[in-house]
Design a protein around this nucleic acid. Structure first.
Lengths: 300, 300
DNA sequence: TTTCTTTGGTAAGGAAAACTTATCAACGAA
DNA sequence: TTCGTTGATAAGTTTTCCTTACCAAAGAAA
């Protein structure tokens, strides 16, 4: 019942009106002049009224009818609205804008994400990012409840989470962290049994060793420190040694060093967790791609 | 560079989203389901991002992606805006709304226009009308300066006004107005020379007779009254008689009667004056058409 | 389980819309 | 007058859109 006005037609109309000529408008539209003529005529038919003064008669200038004059600002507004929406959506699709929510385990959150996000955000000034951290279980829970677009976690058992998918990105090897002047600091790698003679401090990541041959180490620990800051302080004070995944070791520590465990060689796969049937928002998708790309580059 | 979103496509998208299905949307759009599928796919390609969750996979329900969810309200707004504009313009073209300015000579203004406008406005509740009256010269001036959309006037000499067009509507015959008990009230028509024996009052319309054989009458007039109300009062008081065009005679006078002049038979053509190269606004055009139609009907 | 029904996606052909080239008439300027 | 410009018009082609016919997947019912 209502006519369906095409944005293109409105543009033609506005151009003819503002450039005062069909030829000029045609050039601007990258069309030929008859195309514009027909487009305008069609628009006039749809609206049921002439937009320009009868142009076959002796009139020289292309001039709007009162009806056309009334229509012009409305057409311009509608075009502007359309362009605003189109631009918004395009920017969003190109992840230049939007809101991104992610959750990550602390190790990646502190060691990897900061500079990675910095790079990612560089050409997306309007992108808002909400960031949460927690252990892998917490991260997975947030993915499940869709509080976040995706999560970065380890300890992922596909059997228990058939509704989610896991894409491994980082291989995080467990090793021993000790002061640089500690005897084992010289080692290139170390066997778990060699640790028994030292004071081992347990921490939140220790349970990774639970199902390995090194599990006896866990019972041996006299100290358990869950807070990472405190743990590092204790280690730096020479209080003892601990096992940690590589990415959980502070990057710039002058006083600590990392020696990989050769046996058991425990590799913790950390990667991206997302819901299977939910596709990601464009910025989220873009970040995931960016992460994959970056980790690829770093491996080469 | 920016994609050009078609309103139709947006409608399809909104329908699929709100009716939660392509089939339902297809029915609403009076299209087949594949048409909707293709329309949505095209829209997705334009935006560069999926709007609905991948539907080939095991997902049952038609569900929006986050991107689609974000787009939905914007699409609805844009459609609403479009419809508002389309409706506005359609109403305007159908003269259901708008602003109409006309000028008319008093005779038509008082005798014809009131009930004619009443009829015309009946189905156009939002139509605003500005009305001016004046003698023919004044009316034509207002048309020239485009203060009014068109004018209703007589005394039109095409030679002097080649930039305007005149459409005669009413034929207004000059006659004698006298009290009903006056001797000439009995006549069916009258010759100008028969008037010389009575006291003739001149008025604003008298100069119509200037170029006719009856011009001697003008010099004979002892009284001249320009104001119509006063003139009528004088006539009703039996002070004398006058010549007037038929349409200038008060319609419902109980005390006066009109006797046409048979010689000279002076017919004053009253009609519509408008600019040649300016087309009328839709309501103006509609009123002109309405007037033509009405006068036609009344003649039959 | 198998079958039926519903979902939407895909392919191929045809109708409709949009655009092109070629041409025309009208007007203004040189 | 002639030329250069305006936009309208006709005919034909390209592109877009839509249709019919068919398919695969998944949920419901037998």
């Amino acid at each position: 019942m209502l006519p369906e006005l095409k944005i293109t037609q409105l543009r033609h109309f506005v151009w003819v009106a503002e450039l005062k000529g069909f030829h000029a408008a045609a050039e601007k539209a990258h069309r030929t002049q008859p195309a514009i003529s027909l487009s305008i005529r069609d628009l006039e038919n749809k609206l049921g009224e002439g937009l320009f003064e009868k142009r076959n008669a002796k009139t020289a200038k292309t001039e709007l009818t009162p009806f056309g004059r009334y229509f012009l600002p409305k057409a311009k507004e509608l075009i502007a609205h359309h362009d605003r929406v189109a631009e918004d959506m395009t920017l969003l699709a190109e992840h230049k804008t939007g809101h991104l929510r992610i959750a990550s385990v602390p190790s990646i959150a502190t060691r990897i994400l900061p500079e990675l996000l910095l790079q990612f955000v560089a050409d997306s000034p309007d992108l808002h990012i909400s960031f949460f951290d927690g252990n892998s279980d917490a991260v997975i829970k947030m993915v499940e409840s869709q509080e976040v677009d995706f999560g970065i976690a380890s300890l992922f058992h596909e059997e228990e989470h058939s509704d989610k998918s896991f894409t491994p990105i980082w291989d995080d090897q467990i090793g021993v962290v000790c002061p640089i002047n500690h005897p084992i600091a010289e080692f290139d790698e170390i066997h778990w049994e060699e640790l028994t003679q030292y004071r081992l401090i347990g921490n939140g990541t220790s349970r990774i060793l639970e199902d390995t041959e090194a599990s006896p180490l866990l019972g041996q620990s006299q100290f358990y420190i869950s807070n990472m800051i405190s743990l590092i302080a204790m280690l730096e004070a020479g209080f003892g040694i601990t096992t940690l995944p590589w990415y959980a070791v502070p990057k710039d520590s002058q006083k600590l060093t990392f020696v990989p465990l050769s046996s058991p060689k425990v590799i913790r796969h950390i990667g991206i967790v997302q819901m299977n049937n939910k596709s990601l928002s464009p910025p989220a998708e873009a970040l995931v791609e960016f992460i994959k790309q970056q980790s690829q580059d770093h491996q080469d």
